[in-house]
Design a protein around this nucleic acid. Structure first.
Lengths: 373, 373
DNA sequence: TGCCTGGCTGAATCTCTCC
DNA sequence: AGGAGAGATTCAGCCAGGC
């Protein structure tokens, strides 16, 4: 009770693509700090502590409590458990790593409050809208047709987190991906069944849900930690998508099923996984270089797409309007009377009677010099 | 503790259909206990916006919620405020009354935890999916396209709460009403404007949202209390639907606007109290969803109907041709050298030696999920 | 009268690098 | 650490005005 285990199994090497069998907090504490890129957690929802076998942070077992006076203690125990695993997870997260947690109204408010208290910074809450939820049989409530995910960075100062905005937008009819995701439950072939034909795990999540989280918030090769690995959906999807995983699972039946499941996954080819470089990550090209490469001529006139404004290209890579000179951005802002302007997409040159945005010249320059960059 | 207050200011008459101007906690404490059938609360969200302000891509400024009433120094201060008003509200609730609270990820986890701690019993969390949310202008997160409502009874023992299961089902194509509601923002005619043409209140809620809550969880003649009355959406809908209201509002400008608004409302006849289901255009289906549903595989090759062009399906729902990636529409346009292209009718997959247009997969997806989308 | 276009707006925790 | 500058970034709905 309350004492640390006398023997602690520390991995000699970083346990990539492995399942650590045992208490998730001890397992996470055995990892070096700042070592994972992403955490996906599907913690116990259930507040009926006797059934869930919930453990306190000190590893003692919480006894079932059904007295009214102990209701507060029940939430308190769940909160302590939540703070403990969130704290352990936060330690192993790299500064720009992000955390995903999924839950329902039974527990998600506790989890959300706890992670805010610990300094996590919520980026979005995501609603998983179930295509085929279980109906409410007694007609006493609305059909509980969704679960909630919280996506959070390690702290408010963590601005460099991974988010594949363009990839998500491209897969969504060229519209920004919203915070409400419509995805079917995990059923049929995908659902793991035991020899008895019964489902192995009561709350197996659909791979599509994990895939969307990992595609949006991790890069190929990134390490994803799942403290409540269960039957390994996170690991299976990570392997398929070329990510690495570390799973923690206490139950050997689940862990064994997860291991077999993941070993059978065929990863997608590296070629299928290479992602388009996000705009912000592309190398900066000076306007002067594009000019020097001959895409434009010093002295020629640029206009906006509706030919309302004009500017002249100077040999030094500035623009001028009358006596005023400045960068393509400064001058673009100036003529419009706006505080800022992206000159690359604002200014156009005439080519064969048609207006061509100068960003096209930059693209051409980039592809011509891709090898050298 | 446990003693009745020595002096209780009881209103000489119960303030039905009135707005109590002042602090909501004092106002609620002036009401007799166990006197209202329902509480609807839209408390401050504690948004914690940056000082810099947010610009749209066209450099116009977003009119953010920067009112003093939304500012709290710490989470602790917000939690104390939340516990205080929830406690006051719970006292005036009849044993079988229910509480609705609306919030966003900034505050809803605090509110949910607090009300659980105080003994409320959560019946559902409801997601208000916004038809027309504000986009994420910087491309750094998912579009924040929903808000969350919590529906709770006064305690776990309150089994006799009102829920009009059949009425809601009848208004929902004879399907059980789900926990995700698709409703537009409050704009246009419905949005209250001042003499200056500016919105009177920064966060006025749509009447459709209130109507659905009151129709589902109250009876005609029931008393609905709103501690954060604002410009009186709760009162206006209550009056229209034949319910009674009590509003608390600190700001006299809001309270005056609410009074005028509610006085202009014409109550519906009893027979007319049915739920209008909003008509919608066919929902847009993301290619990613069709992929996730298993109609296509990541890595497989698509072609046009004459096999002139090829593209590879990416796991994120984009297509790629060589190094270029983009949506099915963008890549379709690119390979043809056209300004635009409908990817759904352009691209085909090989199935059993024959080409199948991917629009067929979309149709199959649509009919499989018609009920929920 | 009707159609089309352009402008405006909504509870938002909304950049990154270099000097 | 703070400031300056490059340059990346938006969707649906309503309304007014022009044709």
């Amino acid at each position: 009770m309350g004492l640390a285990p006398s023997v602690q199994r520390l991995p000699t090497t970083f346990p990539l693509d492995e399942i650590l069998v045992g208490d998730c907090i001890a397992s996470m504490n055995s990892l070096p700090p700042s070592s994972v890129d992403c955490v996906f957690a599907d913690p116990p929802y259930n507040l009926q502590l006797g059934d869930a076998g919930l453990l306190r942070p000190d590893q003692s077992r919480v006894d079932a409590v059904d007295d009214d006076w102990d209701k507060f203690a029940t939430f308190e125990a769940y909160d302590a458990f939540t703070r403990a695993w969130l704290t352990a997870a936060r330690r192993v997260m790299k500064p720009n790593a992000t955390l995903w947690v999924i839950g329902s109204y039974h527990n998600i408010f506790r989890v959300g409050s706890a992670l805010q208290d610990l300094g996590f910074w919520i980026l979005n809450d995501i609603v998983w809208r179930k295509a085929n939820p279980m109906p409410n049989f007694r007609g006493k409530r609305f059909t509980n047709a969704h679960e909630t995910l919280i996506w959070a960075s390690r702290s408010a100062e963590s601005k460099g987190y991974t988010f594949h905005y363009d990839a998500l937008k491209g897969g969504n009819e060229d519209l920004q991906m919203r915070s409400d995701w419509f995805i079917p439950l995990c059923t049929g072939e995908e659902r793991l069944k035991g020899a008895d034909g019964q489902k192995v795990h009561p709350t197996q999540k659909p791979e599509a849900l994990l895939a969307r989280t990992l595609l949006s918030a991790t890069n190929p090769g990134d390490v994803v930690l799942d403290p409540f690995f269960g039957t390994g959906t996170t690991g299976a999807v990570a392997r398929r998508l070329g990510r690495r995983f570390i799973g923690c699972e206490r139950d050997t039946v689940y862990a064994d099923a997860a291991r077999r499941r993941i070993d059978a996954v065929v990863p997608l080819s590296t070629a299928a996984l290479t992602i388009a470089t996000p705009k912000r990550a592309e190398p900066r090209i000076p306007f002067l270089s594009v000019l020097e490469a001959g895409h434009l001529r010093a002295g020629e006139t640029l206009t906006d797409d509706r030919r309302r404004f004009k500017a002249t290209v100077r040999p030094d890579g500035n623009l001028s309007v009358g006596p005023v000179q400045g960068s393509i951005h400064k001058v673009g802002a100036l003529v419009q009377g706006l505080p800022a302007c992206n000159g690359w997409t604002f200014w156009h040159a005439e080519r064969g009677g048609r207006l061509v945005v100068i960003d096209d010249f930059r693209s051409a320059y980039r592809s011509a010099n891709a090898a050298a960059e």
